[in-house]
């Protein structure tokens, strides 16, 4: 008997279930792309048959970090850049949970960049949504890791001398097994990509373009966008790492030249998730660890039985 009966619960799910009964006042500006992520999740989760109590949404700090204030799931609003290590441990402790981590481009690609690389490398079975608006929002418009070269802000008055980070390529090289980019202005694609990312058994990274109408007014609103899967101008195999890498490079460059390319870039269904790898080595229990503390029949191992080596 499970101590976590929300997990795998089979029941009718109302399409509004992920909207809180008493909703806090949104802190996002009118026209903010963050609403697009929220909407896509609210649609995707019930369509996947998930209930609010079996989903854990772990966020970082920034406008994006407020996601789980408006999405009615178990939530952990952590600290700047640290959503991934919190999220992946929760998944290790109870892999029945559907774990979704989210944060902004500063959060994920800047301060949390080390965790991003290593979580992708390890291929934890979880979804990571990065709200990429190419700017720091909540601290009022400073240059972020994905701001274009030359981006002027109060902290870079002469324009940024840095080339932007390439999020999709970084993710691929680090080891992510599902990499996609979508945009708030493309709600249907966003919902479908989020569904695929959640269903993917491994680290699924979605670079989600979320326009910032307040601090990035000059930037494109990410329209018109092109879906690389639907456009006849692009032909590559998402399962082919080399082709994916080329398409990512082109997509990342094109963004700064005014062309918004979106879609799925890399899908690898063959690589086992970290949990599976570790379980194969005998380093993760078969039953989720979190269940054991509720199992009255479990015979807990004792240090007394380890003393032979000390005698």
């Amino acid at each position: 008997m499970s101590a976590f009966n929300a997990i795998g619960e089979d029941r009718e799910i109302d399409r509004d279930e992920f909207t809180p009964g008493v909703e806090p006042q949104p802190t996002w500006c009118p026209g903010c792309g963050d609403f697009g992520v929220l909407k896509a999740l609210k649609q995707a989760l019930p369509e996947l048959g998930l209930t609010p109590d079996e989903v854990l949404t772990v966020t970082g700090i920034g406008c994006s970090g407020k996601l789980n204030s408006y999405l009615d799931t178990y939530g952990f609003h952590t600290i700047h850049g640290r959503s991934l290590p919190v999220a992946r441990a929760a998944k290790l402790a109870n892999d029945g949970l559907e774990v979704i981590a989210a944060g902004g481009d500063g959060d994920g690609y800047g301060i949390g960049g080390n965790h991003f690389i290593h979580t992708a490398r390890e291929n934890h079975d979880m979804t990571y949504i990065v709200f990429n608006n190419e700017v720091f929002g909540l601290t009022k418009g400073q240059t972020s890791p994905t701001s274009p070269k030359g981006h002027k802000s109060k902290t870079q008055p002469h324009g940024s001398a840095k080339s932007p980070l390439r999020p999709l390529s970084t993710s691929l090289n680090a080891g992510a097994t599902y990499v996609a980019r979508t945009a708030a202005v493309n709600p249907n694609q966003a919902k479908e990509i989020i569904k695929e990312a959640i269903e993917h058994d491994g680290f699924a990274h979605v670079d989600f373009l979320t326009q910032c109408p307040t601090w990035n007014k000059d930037a494109r609103q990410y329209v018109p966008y092109v879906d690389v899967q639907e456009s006849e101008d692009y032909d590559f195999d998402v399962h082919d790492r080399r082709e994916a890498a080329e398409m990512m490079f082109e997509t990342e460059s094109a963004l700064y030249e005014g062309t918004v390319l979106t879609g799925r870039y890399y899908v690898n269904e063959d690589r086992p998730s970290y949990q599976e790898e570790k379980r194969a080595l005998g380093d993760v229990p078969d039953e989720p660890l979190a269940e054991r503390y509720f199992d009255d029949d479990y015979e807990w191992e004792r240090s007394y039985d380890l003393l032979e080596r000390h005698k």
Binding site: T78, R82, A87, A89, N94, L289, Y293
Partner: peptide, 16 residues
């Protein structure tokens, strides 16, 4: 940073 954050995440999910 990750080490402490992982312990926190595991504890949040119900492990000691």
């Amino acid at each position: 940073i990750a080490a402490a954050a992982l312990a926190l995440g595991a504890s949040h999910a119900g492990a000691k």
